[in-house]
Amino acid sequence: METFRILIVDDEDDFREAIMKRLRARKMEVAGANSGPKALEMLDEQEFDVIVLDVKMPGMDGIETLRAIKQKKPLVEVIMLTGHASVESGIQGMQLGAFDYVMKPVALDDLMDKLRQAYERRVLQLEYGRKNI
């Protein structure tokens, strides 16, 4: 299983730490951010393959953060994490280029599956970009 770099963005510390711990156990490189601005800051400093982004956060929300992430790094894949189903944010997120939506609570296997697909997509996209430049 290939290791890739994941950033978890969620304002709920316990949830974020728990998921980071479990992903690390699966040999992933994981970092965490407790807010949108913090995530953007980290994105300036280091490369990530996939970002797991909570939709509902105080201040800068997930949709706003997604927009900013895609402007900074269009090829980073983002999986939206949402506590409650929201059609509007769903449509908005997909249009802004989110890879998928995951509903809380999420089984780690499911999340892992989606992370893997998102990573695969990023690799394909990078390859495609290389071929066409």
């Binding site: 949402t82 189903a85 929201s86 059609v87 769903g90 509903m103």
Partner: peptide, 26 residues
């Protein structure tokens, strides 16, 4: 750039199920 599709194996049943769950509350 996003116009260019990235081709991956897609499990449509699962994809449909996910989206149905996303609209479930509404």
């Amino acid at each position: 750039r996003r116009q260019q599709p990235i081709v991956q194996a897609v499990n449509l049943n699962r994809l449909v199920g996910d989206m149905v769950r996303l609209v479930a509350k509404e």
